[in-house]
């Protein structure tokens, strides 16, 4: 099972890199989204994939019948997903503002802060 998840993570990373190198800010963002999902999958797999019970105590603190799943990678993932969501939403807002200011989303043409020689 880990192999499948690892391959999927690799596939997502490859797609992400392709998108991020395409020179368009919106595509870059989609690539970043895929990349963070690839990383999330990798962390999930790194925490071992088991068929365990949810790591929750029953009534009166009773332990579940069989082996429990490792809850720490899940907690890490949840945190990472939430943070990733916030950052992505901000980046999306920034992209919209960039589009309004420049009228395009081509990264190579965004030279306002670093004008090329002779075009100041």
């Amino acid at each position: 099972m880990e192999t499948v998840v690892a391959l999927l993570s690799g596939l997502l990373t490859a797609a992400a890199v392709w998108l991020m190198l395409s020179g368009n800010l919106l595509r870059f963002l989609f690539g970043l989204l895929l990349l963070s999902n690839a990383v999330n999958l990798a962390i999930f797999a790194a925490g071992r994939l088991t068929e365990g019970a949810p790591p929750l105590l029953g009534a009166d603190g009773a332990l579940p019948g069989h082996e429990m799943a490792n809850s720490l990678p899940q907690a890490l993932l949840l945190t990472a997903i939430v943070i990733g969501f916030g950052l992505f939403a901000f980046a999306l807002g920034l992209t919209i503002r960039a589009y309004r200011s420049f009228g395009h989303l081509e990264i190579d043409r965004m030279r306002l802060a670093e004008p090329e020689e002779g075009e100041k």
Partner: peptide
């Protein structure tokens, strides 16, 4: 608060 700030801001700019 956080989610609604984002959603409202995105909705208003679009």
């Amino acid at each position: 608060g956080g989610i609604l700030t984002l959603i409202f801001a995105l909705e208003e700019t679009l």
